[in-house]
Amino acid sequence: MTAVSVLGAGSWGTALALLIARNGHPTVLWGHHPEHLAKLNAARCNERYLPGARFPDNLRVVANLEEAVKTAEILVVAVPSHAFRNLLMDLAPHLTPESKIAWATKGLELQSGKLLHQVTEDVLGPDIPAAVLSGPSFARDLAANLPTAITVASREIEFAKMLAGLLHNNRFRAYTTEDIIGVQLGGATKNVLAIAAGVADGLGFGANSRAALITRGLAEMMRLGLALGGKPETFMGLAGVGDLILTCTDNQSRNRRFGLGLGKGLPREQVAAEIGQEIEGILTTKVIYQLAQSLGIEMPITEQTYKILYEGLAPSEAVNNLLLREQKPEALAG
């Protein structure tokens, strides 16, 4: 059995810790807020995010980061992207020669636009084994032991296989790839497109519009991903189109629900407060838009989402801007 610590005690981090512990591995769950961790320990359940999903006996909740890092061979980071670098800096002094790191965070670094494997190399150096977990996977379904499949990406394929084996059971399937760039870009960009899909549905545009948006959104994801070195097959897989479909169509997606509220004309602050959890796509929209601009890559859905969030553009006007664009052959369309 492999000792694992999951760093981040929100819904997704808790669900991953449950999966790993249920598979028989000694598991630690750590979070930033001691009072939240105390409630988890007392209830032996994350009642706030995953009510009813009881913690196995081999899942420990700890408030001390040093303990969480030093007692595990594999660290799985599940914090929002804006907290990613700071957490790596905090855990770095406690790493051992055997430490390996993976993350389930879906986003890019706001200040630099870097992918999280680049942030990991900045902070921890190029030699630590590193991997990313991504794919169509809602925390609630995972905690309920419903069938789920994801992709594990690492440039060290043996580490990816190790992680996949650690996660695998008769209800959870993990595929492997070396395309760490494509997997990360798929996981980040789909949150932007889920906000856009929510806006369209909030405006009452129906299934035709949603299908068109998902399809053209996938084209945007692929243009950016291929420009940065991702592989086409990654975007046609679980971490690309799979996660995109999930987050654009199901209301478990916080990004989609946020877009729905905006499309219905509700104030942004009210929608975010009602959701009450991190909406990763808000910051990711800014990073992806700026990255596409810097590379000269056309991403019209992302651009209009950015204008809604950061320039006050009315959602109905954003849709008009998309529909009034110049006609093109589909293969050449931005």
Score class of each variant (00 low, 15 high):
5 S>Q: 04
7 L>I: 13
10 G>V: 04
11 S>D: 04
15 A>T: 12
21 A>N: 08
22 R>K: 10
33 H>I: 10
35 E>L: 02
39 K>C: 00
40 L>T: 07
42 A>I: 04
44 R>S: 05
45 C>L: 03
50 L>C: 06
56 P>I: 08
57 D>L: 15
57 D>A: 15
58 N>I: 09
71 T>K: 08
77 V>D: 02
83 A>F: 11
84 F>I: 01
85 R>Y: 09
85 R>Q: 12
89 M>W: 01
89 M>P: 00
90 D>T: 05
99 S>Q: 06
102 A>Y: 03
104 A>M: 08
107 G>W: 02
109 E>T: 01
117 H>A: 10
118 Q>N: 09
130 A>W: 07
132 V>Q: 02
132 V>I: 11
145 N>P: 01
147 P>F: 08
148 T>S: 14
151 T>A: 09
165 G>K: 12
168 H>I: 06
171 R>Q: 06
174 A>T: 02
175 Y>F: 15
181 I>R: 00
184 Q>V: 04
189 T>W: 05
190 K>V: 09
195 I>D: 00
196 A>Q: 01
199 V>T: 01
200 A>E: 05
201 D>Y: 04
205 F>D: 00
206 G>V: 11
207 A>D: 15
213 L>H: 03
215 T>C: 01
215 T>N: 02
218 L>M: 09
229 G>M: 11
238 L>S: 14
238 L>A: 09
239 A>K: 00
249 T>Q: 12
252 Q>T: 11
253 S>K: 08
259 G>V: 12
263 G>E: 07
263 G>N: 04
265 G>C: 10
268 R>H: 09
269 E>C: 06
269 E>G: 03
272 A>L: 13
289 Y>P: 00
292 A>M: 03
306 Y>Q: 08
306 Y>C: 12
310 Y>M: 11
311 E>D: 14
313 L>T: 14
314 A>N: 12
319 V>N: 01
324 L>C: 13
327 Q>F: 15
